[in-house]
């Protein structure tokens, strides 16, 4: 007789939700991979970059965002660790840290967009501004979705129910870390290189 487990058990839900989430993240990666590939093609085929006498976007603000999102990922990682160890009393600080840093990231992105406007880089101004704005917009939209998904951690904190919320915690963290990694790649490809 073969061993059987209830899919609704903790083990079952962990396996199913991680398989589902990994495939979901593969889908998201393809979205961002396509966008970055498009960026690379415009970049490589242009005679000079940035084209049409535009200026590069200064590294300062994107670097700040990179640090902020890295820190927020770190905070969420601590959150996950505490949750796994069932140290529910320690959860509040890393949670607030993640949310505040996530909002701060959005704030810096808004600063970045307005600084680009101040530099005379407008969306309609050719392919370079198109790329800079659209790619950061699409990423920011996902960050907003990520921030909303962070709210799903509140019931996990309040209820202190490991069995019920462990999959929520791990799925939300996977998504949030994924967005951090995507931003890191965008930072390197679009701002540093």
């Amino acid at each position: 007789m073969v061993a059987r487990t209830e899919i609704a058990s903790v083990e079952g839900r962990k396996i199913t939700s991680s398989i589902g989430m990994i495939f979901l993240l593969v889908s998201f990666s393809m979205l961002f991979a396509t966008l970055l590939l498009g960026y690379a093609i415009y970049r490589v085929t242009a005679d000079e970059w940035p084209p049409m006498g535009m200026q590069r976007v200064p590294l300062f603000l994107p670097t700040v965002s990179t640090f902020i999102i890295a820190l927020s990922s770190l905070a969420l990682w601590k959150f996950e660790e505490f949750f796994e160890q069932k140290k529910y009393e320690n959860l509040l600080l890393p949670f607030i840290g993640t949310v505040v840093l996530g909002c701060a990231f959005m704030g810096v992105q808004f600063r970045l967009w307005s600084s680009m406007k101040d530099m005379g880089i407008f969306v309609e101004g050719g392919v370079f501004p198109s790329l800079m704005y659209s790619l950061t917009w699409i990423h920011a939209a996902h960050i907003v979705a990520g921030l909303i998904s962070l709210l799903f951690l509140i019931p996990a904190m309040v209820s202190k129910n490991y069995d019920k919320y462990i999959t929520t915690v791990s799925n939300v963290s996977k998504f949030w870390h994924f967005l951090g990694i995507v931003w890191l790649l965008m930072y390197v490809v679009m701002f540093v290189l």
């Binding site: 393809m30 979205l31 309609e124 198109s130």
Partner: peptide, 22 residues
């Protein structure tokens, strides 16, 4: 592969709505 098309039509929408020039 659907997200690849998703990226393509998203940029097409941006071209049409926000005035980008992809």
């Amino acid at each position: 592969f659907l997200p690849v098309l998703g990226a393509g039509v998203l940029l097409l929408i941006f071209d049409r709505v926000f005035g980008t020039t992809f």
